[in-house]
Design a protein around this nucleic acid. Sequence first.
DNA 1: CCATCATATCAGTATCCTCTAATATGAATT
DNA 2: AATTCATATTAGAGGATACTGATATGATGG
Lengths: 126, 126
Amino acid sequence: MMGAKRMEANRLDVKAKFIRGFSDKTRLQILHSIKDKELTVSQIVEELKGNQSNISQHLACLKGCGIIVGRQEGKFIYYSLRNEQIKQLLHMMDVVFSQVEEEVAACDKNDRLDCCPSNKGGTENE
Amino acid sequence: MMGAKRMEANRLDVKAKFIRGFSDKTRLQILHSIKDKELTVSQIVEELKGNQSNISQHLACLKGCGIIVGRQEGKFIYYSLRNEQIKQLLHMMDVVFSQVEEEVAACDKNDRLDCCPSNKGGTENE
DNA sequence: CCATCATATCAGTATCCTCTAATATGAATT
DNA sequence: AATTCATATTAGAGGATACTGATATGATGG
């Protein structure tokens, strides 16, 4: 039964989604900004010089991924890391990343950002 | 000058890219399969029951992200985690993920996988 | 050299993700 | 209850990513 339904998003899909929460520049900036202190949405918007809608969506993502929590106080909502372990994970990511940073940055030898799948087309204008 | 060049992919972009290496189901499966042992591409393909081209591209991604290394031996290429710290990071991701797993899985209440940005349209055709 | 096996790369399509602008909710204040 | 401020949600466009099938490289053995 329930044929068409996608269901069974087998643990790994969920785990991938969790990690994907960390894999975006803007979200990393947000996480950095609330690493040691709660901040309201507007404070984050200001700190990142970002777009309110965009930041709000990223916050929803981070919350949905179990990475941050929000606490309402009057009209404000204060966001912070979900717990100490998340903070430790972030720190460990930092440490490991520092080790490979150069190599990763060099990966796409020139100026494209991606090197994962294909570095296709785009720059062949002659 | 240098107009077209993207350059200046400021550390955070590179870090996001590094983490993005971990944020895909297939790549997580690959990492799991070589967590404790070297494997050749075809062994991985077999273990995951995957498509050779697809796996190969994911391996290139993982390598480009500094997560794994390849060692050629005759016609074979053996892939393994880059170092012990990567293994530790994977382990820590596991631990932290277990804590939030339920909540993350429940995030998109029904059967869609994403809850990050928008959970829009899509499933309303039956 | 030629055939074969292991792996990598290419091209196309379909899907997913991020961004922006516009609009909606909801709490506080008057 | 109307206005204002803080935040969330929606819609659409553009760009990035994953997957597949076909083809290319590169090593080995005859």
